[in-house]
């Protein structure tokens, strides 16, 4: 197995593309999980965004979100459907809220807390969108289970992200490369 002590992704765009690829890989895993509503997601693909919060500058982090959203649309074949719209709105609401809370309250807020807040913001914006586009007033009926499920999965994913961030040699190499590179 090829193990290099230094990061070989030389440009920052390669790093962004690589992070986007991890999101897509996790999206592909998520795609295999059966769901009653197509835009209902466990949110596994948000783990790289959580991990990048302290590593990448804001513009690059948002670029990773763009790659995640478009890539999910390409792989799932949902690029020109409402599903894409829900994915885009939810992903940006989640990423922006996680960024805000992490920047405001770190180190007092853990990745679990940030992840749960991100999930709440993502789910609330998706429910509002569903009210306008699909369900009408009936959207409020799905809000409680949708928010509850989102909180549970975000807690589990946050715990996973905390453990991964603590153990990962790959993430450590990315962190040190980003810190060492003035180009980033």
């Amino acid at each position: 197995m090829a193990r290099k002590s230094t990061i070989s992704l030389t440009s920052r765009m390669d790093l962004v593309a690589f992070m986007g690829a991890i999101c897509l890989f996790l999206s592909a895993i998520e795609y295999m999980i059966p769901k009653p509503i197509p835009f209902l997601r466990v949110g596994i693909a948000n783990v790289p965004i959580l991990l990048c919060l302290d590593v990448l500058p804001v513009p690059l982090l948002l670029l990773v979100v763009v790659l995640k959203v478009i890539g999910q649309g390409l792989i799932g074949g949902t690029l020109i459907s409402y599903v894409f719209l829900f994915s885009a709105v939810g992903s940006f609401a989640s990423a922006l809220s996680m960024l805000l809370f992490r920047r405001l309250f770190a180190p007092r807020i853990s990745l679990v807390g940030v992840g749960v807040l991100g999930a709440l913001f993502s789910n609330i914006t998706q429910i509002l969108l569903a009210r306008v586009l699909i369900f009408g007033e009936g959207a409020w009926l799905i809000a409680p289970p949708f928010l509850a499920l989102g909180t549970v999965t975000a807690t589990l994913l946050g715990l996973f992200a905390e453990r991964f961030a603590a153990r990962s040699r790959w993430l450590a190499s990315v962190r040190s490369a980003v810190a060492a590179s003035k180009a980033l």
Binding site: L63, G71, S81
Partner: peptide, 25 residues
């Protein structure tokens, strides 16, 4: 969307190149 969108679809420009690179990884 599902019949008209394939993973190998490539967009032009810098963002298109970035998407292509991401799909490569």
């Amino acid at each position: 969307s599902q019949f008209s969108i394939r993973a190998e679809l490539r967009f032009p420009g810098r963002v298109g190149g970035l998407i292509g690179r991401s799909l490569f990884y």
